[in-house]
Design a protein around this nucleic acid. Structure first.
Length: 503
DNA sequence: ATAGGGTTAG
């Protein structure tokens, strides 16, 4: 009966039946409890989940491997990683599924590195992974974004002769794309026999955030040619592809096509893309009108897109309006204040810059420290601003000094407007020259053979000045530089970036 | 006798 309710998605009836069952005095067996725990998982009901854990414990079922695995999974979906980990560590024995669940749990809760460590430990203990394990491992690598890991995982999947079914194939595409290797992603996609709407959407999105809008559109045409029906997410992927590549007209066309031909009702994500498109085209008034007229709940992303567009086109007044709504929705996000402050700074409104900074101080907000990671010799090196902790710091700063002189001759002018602090111009200059992006790139130039591409990962958006700097480096040093920032990839080559300086 | 784990969007 409980199982029936679970299948039907009637969670409340499931709970009440379970309560009746408990009252009846009949001792539940170890197959009934997981059914209810799955409901807790799917509804992310941690309170009920904890209660179930107690029942399981009292009845002595927690030593059953599969019962414990369900608990781990439930805790992961409730984002209670500490409980999940404790449960997993206490398990007397762990089989394939419990390992797989824990690998997925760790990624789900924001620690993909730990997932990969678990994967190694699992094999050390002699448990062989299956396809589903590999889907979780691919997801962990995708989140981590380390390219050498992606290669290892791909090789491992091949060596185990796991066939790429729709789900594993799609996970591998996503992994390669998010690790910066769009070519491998596309090769994997082309090799897959069976593709569903998720595979297509994943690949379209991948071309999109790598700045290959035309390829995304080509793929969409191919998809339609094969008789596949796009869904709401496919259109989000497409619209973002257009905005990442500056395909304004195409994007707007897709937005109407989506509603008229495919009956997709636009949600807030679609609107965000269109605001982005209008913003890029400089049609800020149309963007604002769209935001004001829509009758869907507005979220942080939407106002953020508008604010970003205001920064590009230096529309201070509208920026204030967008920022007001944005800060109301999410007053604790330091990034929004920084963006607003940058807009004021560019317009020379120093009083307002100070005001924003005061507001941040009063609310005890600090700019999230930025970092940049770079892979050299299959090792990840992490830099923060003004970092002297790296063992090659001396060489890095020397290289940076040479680079700075070379690029300034080539026409690079540092833009100190991106410095938030109220300090002397001279100090600002020093600060901006030790941004983590620049340290990482200097290290990359020393540590990697000439002509090899430099790959970096950042936790935030690339700083505007660093973006210009990297463009100059790609030209002066004749290097391809690939940067993954908080929401897209930048491919720098011959002094230009795939984002066309809009991001 | 049964049972637990998998893919897309900034």
């Amino acid at each position: 009966m409980i199982g029936g309710y679970t299948k039907a998605g009637d969670y409340m009836s499931c709970y009440s039946t379970f309560r009746e069952y408990m009252r009846s005095g009949i001792r539940p067996d170890n197959f009934t409890l997981p059914l209810v725990m799955k409901v807790c998982r799917d509804t992310k009901d941690l309170v009920m989940g904890r209660l179930m854990h107690t029942v399981v414990y009292k009845l002595g079922f927690s030593s059953y491997c599969f019962v414990a695995a369900v608990l781990v999974d439930m805790y992961a979906k409730c984002k209670a990683i500490d409980y999940a980990k404790q449960m997993f560590d206490e398990m007397p024995e762990r089989d394939l599924i419990s390992w797989t669940v824990m690998i997925g749990a760790s990624t789900e809760c924001g620690n993909p590195q730990y997932s990969l460590d678990l994967f190694d430990r699992m094999r050390e203990e002699g448990v062989m992974p299956d396809k589903i394990t590999m889907v979780n491992v691919a997801n962990a690598s995708a989140k981590l974004g380390a390219m050498h890991k992606a290669k290892i995982v791909d090789d491992y999947i091949r060596s185990m002769r796991f066939s790429l079914d729709v789900i594993l194939g799609t996970a591998v595409i996503d992994m390669h794309a998010k690790c910066g290797n769009i070519e491998f992603a596309r090769e994997t996609f082309d090799k897959m026999r069976e593709k569903n709407v998720i595979s297509w959407s994943t690949m379209i999105a991948a071309h999109g955030y790598h700045g290959e809008g035309e390829k995304a559109l080509d793929l969409f045409r191919m998809m339609l040619g094969e008789g596949k029906w796009p869904n709401s997410i496919t259109f989000v992927s497409l619209l973002y592809s257009c905005s990442h590549s500056g395909l304004v007209e195409e994007g707007l066309r897709l937005f109407s096509l989506m509603q008229e031909e495919y009956g997709v009702r636009p949600d807030v994500k679609h609107f965000t893309c269109v605001v982005d498109l209008f913003g890029r085209a400089g049609k800020l008034d149309q963007a604002l009108k769209m935001v004001e007229d829509m009758n869907i709940e507005k979220d942080v992303g939407l106002w953020g897109a508008l604010l970003g567009a205001c920064r590009i086109h230096e529309r201070v007044e509208m920026a204030e309006k967008a920022a007001e709504s944005l800060l109301e929705l999410q007053p604790e996000n330091a990034g929004h204040y920084v963006l607003l402050s940058n807009i004021y700074a560019k317009a020379g409104k120093w009083k307002e810059v100070a005001k924003v900074r005061d507001m941040m101080t009063r609310r005890r907000l600090k700019k999230i420290p930025g970092w940049t990671c770079i892979e050299v010799d299959n090792k990840i090196h992490k830099f923060s601003v003004g970092d002297y902790t790296h063992y090659m710091s001396k060489e890095i700063y020397e290289e940076l000094k040479c680079l700075r002189e070379k690029l300034e001759v080539a026409g690079y002018i540092p833009d100190t407007n991106f410095v938030l602090h109220d300090i002397e111009e001279e100090l600002k200059l020093e600060l901006i020259y030790t941004h983590s992006e620049k340290l990482a790139i200097a290290f990359g130039l020393i540590g990697m053979p000439e002509g090899t591409p430099i790959r970096m990962t950042k936790n935030l958006r690339v700083c505007g000045d660093c973006h210009t700097f990297i463009r100059f480096v790609s030209l002066a040093e004749n290097r391809v530089i690939v940067v993954r920032d908080a929401n897209r990839f930048h491919h720098f080559k011959d002094g230009a970036c795939s984002c066309r300086d809009y991001w």
